[in-house]
């Protein structure tokens, strides 16, 4: 593999990692507050749908907004079922993911295709060149000539880290995921905190879906997230529920995915389907290696009932 191939691989890695990064950052909010973010996939897909509808009807900015709104709405559905009514996080998340597939297909057909499968063409967001940095030899054009959503994905961990560790809200959010009773004992409302965290998770993951539509594919196709939400979920675990390491994990999984794309070109005597399994097999292998993590928020997946002790 020569230099050009390597650059190409890196470019693909960054491209694939961007939607994952948004989803994973959203998932961190949800899981640190104590709700497993199994519904990330559905939130991303809803976001992608919202992005397509918004962009077609009103333009790209509306696309981003629509993605956040639709992702947040899916988050609100999940939060209502799990947080308010105490349903199982896993089952609810998976059900929401399946619901999202049907719902987005339906909405896109109704809103954009007059009932039939629509032909959607959205102009991709162009790259934004950062002067000087982009002129650096070698990696310059690769890192600093990207769509602005990619820069955003790279920067989200900064405010997220500050929020979680430095703000009172973040502290309360983390406490809600560790010991909701302690939050309740000091006069907080763990249920409200969790609800908001899951909605915020949906909005951020929704933008991850928008990246796919507005930045990479230019259209909406059925079930276009295709498992990226689950990969983001694995990245959160590998990243120990902390923003920067989770971004690194996203890049790792994205690199594996990019590599499989390249490997397929070399017409190896292996089925391309087997090659496509690699990123997920890698995720499983990493998870097995990590085993049960002590860093998992202690109260994640548990329900909290007021006055229930």
């Amino acid at each position: 593999m020569d230099w050009a191939h390597l650059l190409d691989l890196l470019a693909a890695t960054i491209r694939i990692a961007t939607p994952l990064a948004f989803a994973a950052m959203g998932g961190i909010l949800s899981e640190r507050a104590g709700v497993f973010a199994v519904g990330l996939e559905g939130m991303m897909l809803s976001g992608a749908c919202g992005a397509a509808v918004g962009a077609v009807l009103l333009g790209p900015a509306a696309g981003i907004l629509g993605a956040a709104l639709c992702g947040g709405a899916m988050g609100a559905v999940i939060a209502t079922v799990t947080v308010r009514h105490g349903a199982d996080n896993m089952v609810t998340g998976i059900a929401a993911n399946i619901l999202a597939i049907g719902l987005t297909n339906f909405l896109v057909r109704v809103l954009l295709g007059h009932g039939a499968s629509p032909r959607i063409h959205i102009d991709l967001l162009g790259p934004v060149r950062i002067p000087l940095l982009a002129d650096l030899p070698g990696l310059g054009p690769l890192l600093f000539d990207q769509p602005w959503l990619t820069y955003m994905a790279a920067l989200v961990p900064l405010p997220l880290t500050l929020f979680l560790s430095r703000s009172r809200w973040g502290l309360t959010l983390r406490a809600a995921g560790e010991n909701p009773l302690a939050v309740f004992a000091v006069g907080g409302d763990p249920l409200a905190i969790r609800f908001r965290a899951v909605v915020a998770c949906g909005a951020v993951a929704g933008i991850g879906g928008a990246v796919l539509v507005l930045g990479q594919v230019g259209t909406f196709t059925d079930n276009m997230t295709a498992g990226r939400g689950y990969l983001a979920l694995a990245a959160i675990i590998v990243g120990r529920w902390t923003p920067w390491p989770t971004i690194a994990a996203c890049l790792l999984f994205a690199a594996a995915d990019a590599l499989t794309l390249r490997v397929q070109v070399f017409s190896l005597p292996v089925s391309s389907y087997v090659v496509q399994m690699l990123p997920y097999a890698l995720a499983l292998a990493v998870l097995v290696g990590l085993g049960h993590s002590a860093r998992l928020p202690a109260a994640a997946g548990t329900t909290f009932r007021r006055g229930g002790g």
Binding site: W169, L171, T172, R174, A175, N179, A182, V183, V186, A298
Partner: peptide, 21 residues
């Protein structure tokens, strides 16, 4: 009523307005 995964200072600040926004 403590959060075991957090430090003493974080537990003190939890839910306390004087800890600052």
């Amino acid at each position: 009523m403590l959060v075991e995964a957090m430090t003493v200072a974080e537990n003190v600040m939890l839910g306390w307005d004087a800890a600052g926004r």
